[in-house]
């Protein structure tokens, strides 16, 4: 599983970072980004899905592979 943040949609609610600080980072302006090119370790896929389900801007996309 790989994650992508749509920078146009992300408004910095920081839910993703609160739920999975190992997968996301947030800059001082609230813009979220993904660690390690968005590649999610197998045992963190649930956390990734939780982050997606809590982003009020629908800014996190999962690219399953």
């Amino acid at each position: 599983m790989r994650l992508r943040i749509d920078p146009e949609r992300c408004q910095g609610h920081a839910r993703c970072f609160a739920l999975a600080p190992d997968l996301f980072d947030i800059d001082d302006y609230g813009q979220s980004s993904v660690h390690s090119d968005g590649v999610v370790p197998a045992d963190r896929e649930d956390a990734a899905r939780l982050a997606i389900a809590n982003c009020p801007e629908f800014a996190i996309e999962a690219l399953e592979d």
């Binding site: 408004q11 910095g12 609610h13 920081a14 609160a18 609230g30 939780l50 389900a53 809590n54 982003c55 009020p56 801007e57």
Partner: peptide
């Protein structure tokens, strides 16, 4: 509640600038 896309801090470009502090 696991999935919670609430918009208490608004939605879009005016998203509460103080939401981290408030939380």
């Amino acid at each position: 509640r696991a999935a919670n896309r609430h918009v208490a801090f608004g939605s879009g470009i005016h998203r509460c600038a103080g939401s981290n502090l408030a939380r």
